[in-house]
Amino acid sequence: MKQIAKLTPGEKLEITLEPVTRMDLIKYSGSSGDFNPIHTVDEEAAKAGLPGIIAHGMWTMGNLSKLFTPYYEEGFIQDYKIRFSGMVFLNDVLTLSAQVDESTDEYLDFNVKATNQNGKAVIKGMVRFSKR
């Protein structure tokens, strides 16, 4: 595995997830304590005017951060900013990516996003990975 510190602007970390399942969202409800039923119960999603249950935005944000997990021996995520821009439905296939924007002696800045199978960004933001 290449060191994260060796990445240069434009280079990318990227993975594609398995399709989103109801069990993924049930597990996240339990582990996060966010039991808002629009994430797990069809009838509640329908009542809220949604075509189906949607993933917790924080589930997607949590998933995106794992692009950086293999690199904790080199540093850590100092800043992580996300704007939630689209909904994630069951069976959606998300691609997570982080592209180096800037690299200095102290940190690496990444533009990060999760896009669905139609190419739409559902969350978008930045990560500053501290090299300290």
């Binding site: 808002n36 809220a48 924080m58 100092q78 900013k81």
Partner: peptide
């Protein structure tokens, strides 16, 4: 309210893990 809120943005800052 327990319902109807939309999560717009989330921003973390860490001094250390």
């Amino acid at each position: 309210p327990s319902k109807g809120l939309i999560h717009g943005e989330q921003i973390y800052h860490y001094v250390r893990p």
